[in-house]
Amino acid sequence: MGRALVWKLNARLHNRMYRYISGHASDDVLFMNWAYEEDPAMAIPLDPTDEPHRYPIQLYHSVAAQNGGLAGMRVLEVGCGHGGGASYIMRTFGAESYVGLDLNAVGITFCRRRHHVPGLEFIEGDAEQLPFRAESFDAVINVESSHFYPHFTQFLSEVTRVLRPGGEFLYTDIRQWYQCDQWEADLEATGMRMVAGRDINKQVLRGMELNKPQWDAVWDRIAPGFLRSIGSAPTTGTPLSRDLENGKQFYRMYCLTKG
């Protein structure tokens, strides 16, 4: 079986998994992204209600803070999941407004029920056909979801379209080792200026290890048996973490600005 076909089958499985989790999650399942921790520890101050989600939050925090913060900005997050990152960023970074968009209708229903923050709204929509006018946003955030978009370059074209001149694309995601050259080429082809880009495998692995008790408790509660058996949770001791350790996958973080 070819690599491309395996990747497509994996994408289909994970999209169904996310819909399943959204339909069965309790209100404490606010994050579905992997985790992040630096050395020495980031030690960002968190509210007591945010503390259980420290390591997924630190991934969002690091992405959002790449180019000086989001104060006064109109922000769009594409692929907002269960909205935990959107809520944290809106409460922490002083954005003027924040729109969380996701294709998963069940997830958007969850977000609207769970998160009530002034200036924050959630919309069902397609990453490859963003339902917004050109130059509508000062920043677009995308955390760990673009690797399953059917047409990644179309998504990048939409990001470029909805950003105002000087706007920021704040982005983190994962790719298989053999996809990385094309990944970089696709980002360069947008015409946006690369402000920062780095591998964060070590930081993600460290975060996954520290977040393991929290994630395992969630996973055991809501994941069906076949998902537990194949070890598809983003935690240590699984194929996902071993691929990061062995360099078969790369997790990277980027900041690009539109000219």
Results as ranks from 00 to 15, higher is better:
M1R: 04
G2M: 10
L5R: 13
L9K: 13
N10Q: 13
H14C: 03
M17A: 13
Y20E: 05
S22P: 01
S26Y: 04
F31P: 04
A43S: 12
Y55E: 04
I57A: 05
N67F: 01
L70K: 01
V78K: 03
G85K: 05
S87T: 07
S87V: 02
T92A: 02
Y98L: 15
D102I: 03
I108S: 01
V117G: 09
I123E: 08
D126N: 15
R133S: 14
R133C: 09
A134P: 04
E144N: 14
H147S: 14
H147Q: 15
F148W: 00
P150F: 02
H151I: 05
S157L: 02
E158A: 04
E158Y: 04
V159K: 05
V162N: 10
E168Q: 14
Q179L: 04
W183A: 01
L187E: 01
E188L: 13
M194E: 15
V195M: 14
R198G: 09
R198T: 06
R206W: 03
W215S: 01
D216Y: 00
W219V: 13
P234K: 04
P234C: 08
P239I: 11
S241T: 10
G247E: 11
Q249A: 11
F250T: 08
M253V: 10
C255L: 05
C255N: 10
L256E: 02
L256Y: 15
K258M: 10
